[in-house]
């Protein structure tokens, strides 16, 4: 009985899977990993981010542009299948991955929520001959995977160094922690502290912790500003600098406290435009998307690809803010 149910479920899954495959792309040849059989066939690349989030929409945008360019160059249709999990949950992400693999795409780019939790599914997919590329995260040692992304430590160091320069290398600087358990937030926090340690006249004070919430960033920053009337600069580790900026404005300390933030969300860029945030050091999600697609394509036709592709850090201030607002809007 149980076997019957199981086989029925499997059959249903197969039907749904192949149906999804048909709608997404032409059925690929039985052995997608075979380097010789590329000829003239349409290509589909899947992008699986951590969760639904505007930052990943930007990754998708870059990927779409790259796909369009490839289509024109290769004369075949190159499609991007963007599949975002609804919640940041490893199990859900694995399900999304498995469903994506069932459509037999020509490559999957993944931002792993937790590599150890994703590992088994990734290996399974690789066994099917589907190339897997990581983005926005370092490739763990021994995984043999290619990682497209940026160096978060570098992102923070750029911000900290610029802030030091802007305040004349002396005075009090507060650093706000993000979610301490998020590796990129933690990396940025450490890099901020390391970078500031280079300047003997800069005193670092605790800048609070916002747990990735704009409201908390605001109330914590308000208290920090009250407790440190002589504060010169503010750094943070996640995309919630809006809260710090709002607190600085409410304190009437615009121009007195220099804020250098992370990331390029539109509301942050607006504060850069108005001057409350002097500059922001941002990853370039569009570049990550574009490079991830390029890597997947190369791998799918059998070309060796580098282990690490660094998509760089963008430094955004009043000089280039308008083009960035245009780009992100």
């Amino acid at each position: 009985m149980r076997r019957k149910i199981l086989s029925a479920v499997l059959a249903a899954a197969l039907v749904i899977g192949s149906f999804a495959g048909c709608t997404k792309s032409e059925p690929s040849s039985s052995d997608a990993g075979d380097a010789g059989s590329v000829a003239k066939k349409n290509l589909t690349f899947v992008i699986v981010p951590k969760v639904v989030h505007p930052w990943f929409d930007e990754v998708n945008k870059g990927a779409q542009l790259q796909a369009k360019a490839l289509s024109e160059q290769l004369g075949v249709e190159v499609k991007i299948d963007y599949r975002a999990p609804q919640t940041a949950d490893v199990a859900e992400q694995n399900t999304v991955l498995e469903q994506a693999a069932a459509t037999k795409p020509d490559g999957i780019a993944l931002d792993p929520l937790d590599y150890e939790g994703n590992k088994a599914v990734i290996e399974e997919i690789q066994k099917q001959g589907i190339p897997v590329v990581l983005f926005d995260a370092p490739a763990p040692e021994g995984s043999g995977l290619t990682s497209v992304g940026n160096d978060f430590a570098e992102q923070a160091t750029v911000a900290a160094d610029k802030l030091a320069e802007l305040i004349g290398f002396k005075g009090k600087v507060a650093v706000m922690q993000g979610v301490p358990t998020a590796p990129n937030h933690a990396q940025r926090y450490q890099a901020h502290l390391d970078a500031l340690a280079k300047y003997p006249d800069i005193v670092v004070v605790d800048g609070g912790i916002d747990n990735d919430s704009v409201e908390e960033a605001q109330s914590q920053a308000a208290a920090v500003l009250a407790a440190n009337p002589d504060l010169k600069g503010y750094l943070n580790c996640d995309a919630c600098a809006t809260g710090i900026a709002a607190a600085v404005e409410e304190a009437g300390k615009k121009g007195q406290v220099t804020v250098v933030s992370m990331d390029n969300l539109i509301e942050i860029l607006q504060y850069v435009k108005s001057g409350t945030i002097t500059a922001t050091s941002s990853t370039i999600p569009q570049m990550q998307g574009s490079m991830a697609v390029l890597m997947m394509w190369q791998k799918s036709i059998g070309i060796d690809i580098p282990k690490v592709v660094d998509t760089g850090i963008a430094y955004i201030d009043s000089s280039n803010i308008d083009e960035w607002i245009e780009m992100v809007k």
Partner: peptide, 20 residues
């Protein structure tokens, strides 16, 4: 214990926070 607590700005932002 904190000289800044009664700071008018601190009180204002505190009250603004708790309003919500």
């Amino acid at each position: 214990f904190s000289p800044y607590f009664l700071d008018i700005y601190n009180l204002q932002s505190l009250i603004r926070d708790l309003a919500f």
